[in-house]
Nucleic acid binder design. Structure first.
Lengths: 222, 222
DNA sequence: AACGCAGATGACAGAATGCTGATAGGGTGT
DNA sequence: ACACCCTATCAGCATTCTGTCATCTGCGTT
């Protein structure tokens, strides 16, 4: 389950990212409104957490541009100004829910789950690439219909790569997403992880792009 | 049987809550319209008691949003203004019954029983997964037809997992739902609870997703 | 063909996670 | 006051996870 977070406050953004990742989401974060808009316009997300008080392009403007371009993913709006008017404005612009700051991360998680469920995030939570299937709701990976027992880190790796299928993901990015505080210097933890996953999946799902990163090929010609 | 009460008057709310709990319902109370809407939208209730004269989001607006989002639980409307017009409006918005203030708690109980009975015959109150059966109306869990004696906490755990079957539920979320507030990561209460439930059910209903949470697999019938 | 280096693999140990039985405090009904 | 059930906590145990190291492998360049 991939979620986009657009929030300029470093602290809040980090908090949200940590909480979402702890809940098993794959998180893209963005501080700038422009970059955020671009990502939401071009990538596919299960949901978006959108701050209204952004420098540059305003949150509401972003939302309106998405909606008028036909992007229908559920959007949860954050704002410091908790006025009723603003809430109405947000809903009118096409927001699915609204959360005034300050908020508890737990509430953010609950509301996010709610809007994802409401917009049918259930049905579209299975990604199939070749013989490998990823069920995000059950957090389960199967090859030829047989469930594979993956450790948390292994699952995160596979889901991240499969969700970003068709794109070369740099090792650096993977390492950051796996966020294990431990690796500092020249660690080959990612490589070890990839090896473990490959053995368990016994398939050619993950390709190596020497010098660049890893790639799960596009699943669109099936 | 879980019931949601949305009413801003403290006195009335407390009265209703006391009466309902005395009748064996599990009651969530909420004074704010927004929070109430959110709960009704995200949680599962056997019925809702909804006051119309709420500050913030109006009762009718709440009801309409639920209905247009497909939430079908029976709703009993309360109002101080006992006009015929308003009654029609409420019914149009999707209310199942209407009770003008002031009222006797006995009448509230009777009408609540009535609308629950009326809409409760539907199949959605029984969930079967494998050999395990959850009857939400009777708040009873059976394995191979044999009723299992569960404590309140145990029942909440099982019902929550079964209602959310097919989805990995994080320990954190479970702990919150069991709403014993003093949960930190320093407690393994959830694990203990799961262990007890497993022993009582003597079945493999609840799977562990190490590092993520617990999962009751899909029952293929939803 | 040789070489250098990014990546792959196997082994290992400390850490993390979950399970279980025992215990005790709290609440309820008698 | 007493007995009983429920439930939170603790401690110990078993298992799994995961980063690191040492050592290969093989790709791509020279």
């Amino acid at each position: 389950m991939r979620v986009l977070v657009i929030e300029d406050d470093d602290r809040i953004r980090a908090d949200i990212q940590a909480a979402l990742e702890a809940s098993g989401y794959v998180v893209d974060v963005e501080a700038s409104g422009e970059e955020g808009w671009f990502l939401g316009d071009t990538e596919t997300y299960a949901a978006v957490v959108l701050d209204l008080g952004l420098p540059g392009m305003d949150g509401l403007a972003i939302l309106k541009r998405w909606r008028s371009a036909g992007r229908a993913m559920p959007v949860l709006i954050l704002t410091a100004r908790g006025t009723w008017n603003e809430r109405v404005e947000g809903i009118d612009a096409g927001a699915d829910d609204y959360l005034p700051k300050p908020f508890h991360v737990e509430e953010l998680l609950a509301r996010l789950r709610a809007i994802i469920r409401r917009t049918g995030g259930n049905s579209s939570s299975v990604i199939t690439i070749g013989e490998t299937e990823l069920d995000e709701r059950q957090m389960r990976v199967s090859v030829r219909g047989v469930p594979v027992n993956l450790s948390p880190q292994e699952y995160r790796l596979v889901s991240y790569l499969m969700i970003h299928n068709g794109r070369v993901v740099p090792q650096q990015e993977l390492a950051e997403h796996l966020q294990s505080v431990h690796f500092e210097r020249e660690s080959n933890a990612v490589e070890v992880l990839v090896a473990r996953v490959r053995r368990k999946l016994s398939s050619v799902l993950i390709e190596t792009r020497r010098g660049f990163g890893y790639l799960v090929p596009d699943g669109k010609n099936e």
